[in-house]
């Protein structure tokens, strides 16, 4: 994972200023309910994952009625991107970037489906339905067994095949520097 250690001196320099009391006093403190109402935020280590659970067997049903129309019955893709397959293709001339071949973190998958899917009616799936769909997509990719239960405890432990497939931005990498 890329580090941004170069940024921290800036933060430290600003820390003194930030410790002060508010200068303008606008707004007010939100209630816990107001923050909750905005919805769940899930970190890559699984922090924020809610209660609920599901398996690939349960997920297959949800997937076929809510996801397959665009993503294909087995996540092979259609009007929407492929979700399965592609492992071992990233360094070939025709890489196929899917959940199984490309996504680095499993909790991120729960987050995205919960937040943004299905495309035409985001936010409509229950937490357990999302776990089930996640389990099914992981199963389609050979990452999880059919009966493996996905929940807030188990999902963060799933090791995605491309977990170490990302590097920090080295740019400028192309383009002459004219002094």
């Amino acid at each position: 994972m890329p580090t941004h250690s170069v940024l921290f001196p800036v933060l430290l320099a600003a820390a003194g200023l930030w410790a002060q009391t508010p200068k303008y006093g606008v707004g007010r403190a939100p209630s816990p309910e107001e923050i909750r109402a905005l919805g769940i935020i899930v970190a890559p280590d699984g922090t924020g994952l809610p209660e609920g659970s599901g398996t690939a067997i349960e997920g297959r049903e949800v997937f076929s009625s809510r996801c397959a129309k665009c993503h294909g019955a087995k996540g092979e893709g259609g009007d929407a991107p492929a979700l399965a397959g592609g492992q071992g293709t990233l360094n070939t001339p025709k890489p196929r970037k899917t959940v199984g071949s490309f996504w680095p973190y499993a909790p991120t998958l729960w987050d995205y489906i919960h937040r943004a899917m299905p495309f035409h009616e985001p936010g409509q799936l229950s937490h357990s339905q999302v776990y089930a769909v996640v389990a099914y997509i992981l199963h389609l990719n050979g990452i999880a067994g059919e009966k493996q239960v996905m929940n807030a405890k188990t999902l963060p432990k799933v090791r995605m095949p491309n977990r170490n497939g990302f590097v920090a931005d080295p740019r400028p990498d192309v383009g002459r520097i004219q002094k």
């Binding site: 890329p2 680095p104 987050d111 920090a168 931005d169």
Partner: peptide, 26 residues
């Protein structure tokens, strides 16, 4: 920590010929 959301990992990352993808290419 960064949240590694779909739109900063699966999308908006830059895949290189060696199969590694550059993250946070801001």
């Amino acid at each position: 920590q960064p949240h590694m959301t779909r739109d900063e990992t699966a999308r908006y990352s830059d895949l290189m010929p060696d199969g590694k993808a550059r993250l946070f290419t801001f």
